[in-house]
Every structure is written in C-alpha cells, then in structure tokens.
Nucleic acid binder design. Structure first.
Length: 114
DNA sequence: AAAATGACTGGGA
DNA sequence: GTCCCAGCCATTT
C-alpha cells in the first residue's frame, strides 16, 4: 500500500457518522488539492471495514455509480437525500483543514456546508 | 519509460 | 436540469 493510499484512508477514517465529504475535500485534507480522482482510485478497494468509504461522495452530492451499497449505508446513518443526491448542506463534513491548505479549487463547494 | 485508467471536477452546451 | 469534455493525479499496464 502506497503512502498516498494510507493517507487517504486516514482522512476518510476521520469522517464522523452521518457526515459526508467529497473526493476533492478528502484530497485537500490529505494534502493534495486537486487529486480528487486519485482519491477515488485509492478507495476503489474499500476492503478495510474500519474505513467508512461510503461517506465519500461526489462534489455535487451524487454517488459513485459502481458503489451500489453506498446509498443504503448512508441512509442507515440517517443521511438525508434530495432526489438522487446527499443533502450536503446538512450532512457535509467540516474538517479542520491543515495549515496552509490552499483551496486551489475544490474548497468553495466542499466547505460550503454550514 | 510511456501510455492507459478511473469510486473526480468545473465549466460550457 | 442533464450531458459532455478537457484537465487532474496516483496507479497500473
């Protein structure tokens, strides 16, 4: 397992139940702004049960097409949906960003929850 | 070493 | 609103 994968995993583990974070936000917190796609790659296994991979969603609240169990798992945590997407405004995770975590682009949307 | 891949994203159509 | 495309990035061929 690469350093990157391990780092992503650690961030995801910090997402509290009932909260969700976009791939982009995870990348930002992991120290690689803009690496959203790479985050998805790191999560593709989702074998470790200690990692709440279902709490990672697309920036617009929609879910990964290939991760079918995601919707059910989120609802099990009482996460509300608006149509086919998660209600980011109410369930978006507001992490404590690392110092100097510059928001190259994913920030506005990702931290818009409040 | 070079090219293809994919649980992404923002912007434009 | 939905669809499509061109960048992005670490991993895998």
């Amino acid at each position: 397992m690469s350093e990157w994968t391990r780092r992503v995993r650690d961030v995801v583990r910090a997402i509290p139940p009932g909260r969700v974070a976009s791939y982009g936000l995870v990348a930002l917190v992991a120290g690689r702004p803009g690496a959203a796609r790479a985050v998805g790659l790191a999560m593709s296994g989702c074998d470790d049960p200690a990692v709440p991979c279902h709490r990672v969603v697309h920036a617009d609240g929609s879910l990964a097409a290939t991760f079918r169990a995601q919707h059910a798992r989120l609802r099990r945590e009482r996460v509300a949906f608006v149509g086919r997407r998660v209600d980011i405004a109410r369930h978006g995770w507001l992490p404590r960003l690392p110092q100097g975590a510059r928001s190259s682009r994913t920030t506005r949307k990702d931290s818009a929850a409040a």
